[in-house]
Design a binder for these strands. Structure first.
Lengths: 356, 356
DNA sequence: ATCGTTGTCGATAACGTTTTCGAAGGTTAG
DNA sequence: CTAACCTTCGAAAACGTTATCGACAACGAT
């Protein structure tokens, strides 16, 4: 019982009276070891409690079996996504490292760039970028998939959801309730999803023959505190809107809080619809009408896609068996969004709230 | 621009006209390299965009700078803890791997055992066990700290919160509101925290001169679905309790849902107090009275303690400087709990609810 | 001149694996 | 009996680092 030094493949080899090469072969189920030897080595492995060093294997194999997830912060969206990723990782033979930048939103870009570059010669076989800010220019050959990517054209494999349609659904719902003065809290300006939700909003209004009042589309930044600030201004106006579409649930919840604080009842005096369908949005008061986005699914798909991109290690000589070559799955996936109506929206009051 | 093969320390050495030994020295800021050489090598590193291979370093140094967090599932508690851990990890030079067993609660013990054994010869320098089920018998010399550990005596360094006092606080709060028929949904039987919350409950009742009705303490398992089942039975009784103390917020929220479903109003007909103070417990309807447990803090402290246990790598020859030896910090920490009163509890109705 | 001393640097042996490739022995075919 | 093959195995070269330790030069002091 040597508690100090780890038991290595050499120890196993000596105890079994074979070479390390042979031990390695039985470990990897390679062809060319006699049944008797195989059994003996297996027994010694069991007896010594040997576990191969992942580090040494990685060095030799150029593959760590680790996937990195880069999130700016562990807010509800990332958290939910992480669950899906964890589901997908299970049994895949990969591990999950979580890189979180943490509170400081200022140097988000710098932080991402730094990690992206480190990513080159380092721990992970591939990475998932959650709501990334950077264009990830000149990446290092390490496979990457982005979830809800930044705006602008990108060659990076991507998972997102149908934000355009989602934005339309939300807005149409409000319109169908009779609302005409509808405001929007937009999302993080650098993300494509935010842009699309806003276009969805504008299109729906346009289709209904309504002009958008630019002073009614205010920044929310996918963030609770900036949303609260904008909501306060918006709802303090004498000609305040009767409904607001928030670009995500965090913003919507913040809006509800501000409304309550200003003495407005939701949904009687103000309808609010969010976007995301976080678990907490069903719990809050009132339960939030929102656009469902299959976040866990997105995390799951992202991992699956990434693993596909990483590919199998060369099957080598294990008695023939040509590599299956499963290439060719699509490199962009957009998942469906749908409206879920709960209690934060209601028909516009017949008596207009003091507007003209 | 060779996009294929990574740039290695040898490349840098050649470009700079020095040996790999020298490059390694400048990388690690070792003593004994001339200023001119240092600058030249640094320049080449920059130019080539060289990043040292963490894998090779790990192999050589016997240290991976990775910390593992083992969670059974990514429920709110683990998630919150993870945030604290992520905060603490930042700038520490370590990375965080998350191992999640996932839904399947059946083989929890088997899963833990498996990972614990793998942990021996593997990726991480240390690990954090969140609500572990196993005694982690004969661990491998890898430092480990447990958060909210299993019952029974344990030598493992531990972080938890004062569940005993928390249980008492919750119960005393209900008592002070005039409740006499108080039920409890217990937690996961294998966890010390669950046991202590129950003792706190019993002690408080005892101190108030009330006998505990054993049919009122029912299993909740820290789990929403088993709690819901127990709550349904409990609240269907003709002599149902007027208040219930749930061992965690998940159970409390489930109880509220069941109550609503049975036509009981919370808090008018039934008071509910939880335990954890999850973020969502402030959002739900009604906002939950609960015992606050500083979960993020616990995650933070766990990482700090673990890093302390791992210790600095030998400082070697970087020009003297004896190792500081920061040993001796306590190996068990119990954080304070406190009651936060919100809207799910109220005074017991003066007219008894049809009981004798 | 000679002898330490000091300052720089590089060859090299690890770290724990996996894979190649050739050697040794056994079997079968001619 | 020889040639060809197949099976089983081990020696050794990688993989990309870091630490040791000796070589070598320059220099001041005797």
């Amino acid at each position: 019982m040597p508690p100090a030094s780890r038991v290595t493949i050499r120890d196993v080899a000596e105890h079994a009276g074979v070479s390390v090469a042979t031990v390695s072969k039985v470990l990897n189920e390679r062809y060319g070891v006699a049944a008797a030897t195989y059994a003996r080595v297996r027994a010694v492995i069991e007896e010594l409690g040997y576990e191969a060093s992942l580090v040494a294997q990685s060095l030799r194999n150029h593959r760590t079996n680790v996937i990195g997830v880069l999130v700016a912060d562990l807010e509800p969206f990332s958290t939910e996504l992480l669950k899906g990723a964890a589901d997908a990782i299970r049994g895949s033979g990969f591990e999950l490292v979580v890189y979180s930048a943490g509170g400081r939103t200022g140097d988000r870009e710098g932080w991402e760039r730094r990690y992206l570059s480190r990513l080159s010669g380092t721990l992970v076989d591939g990475a998932i970028l959650v709501t990334p800010a950077v264009a990830h220019a000149g990446l290092t050959g390490t496979p990457v998939v982005a979830v809800d990517p930044h705006t602008g054209p990108t060659e990076v494999p991507t998972i997102d959801s149908d934000s355009l349609r989602g934005g339309q659904l939300a807005t149409e719902h409000l319109l169908s309730l009779g609302h005409k003065q509808i405001a929007m809290l937009t999302g993080r300006a650098d993300l494509r999803s935010a842009q699309l939700r806003e276009t969805g909003f504008r299109r729906a209004l346009g289709a209904a023959g309504l002009a958008v009042r630019e002073e009614f589309v205010v920044p929310g930044g996918y963030d609770a505190v900036v949303s609260a600030r904008s909501a306060r201004e918006l709802l303090s106006r004498p000609d305040r809107p009767t409904a607001v579409f928030a670009a995500n649930d965090l913003s919507a919840i913040a809006t509800v809080a501000v409304a309550r604080e200003l003495g407005l009842r939701v949904p009687e005096d103000l309808s609010v619809v969010g976007f995301d369908n976080l678990p907490e949005s069903a719990l809050c008061t009132p339960p939030l009408t929102t656009v469902d986005q299959p976040i866990r699914q997105m995390g799951y798909r992202a991992i699956v896609m990434l693993i596909g991109l990483i590919g199998d290690p060369e099957p080598h000589d294990r008695r023939g068996r040509p590599a299956p070559v499963v290439q060719g799955q699509p490199t962009h996936q957009t998942l469906d969004t749908k409206l879920v109506v709960r209690a934060s929206t209601a028909a516009v009051p017949t008596t207009l709230p003091s507007a003209s």
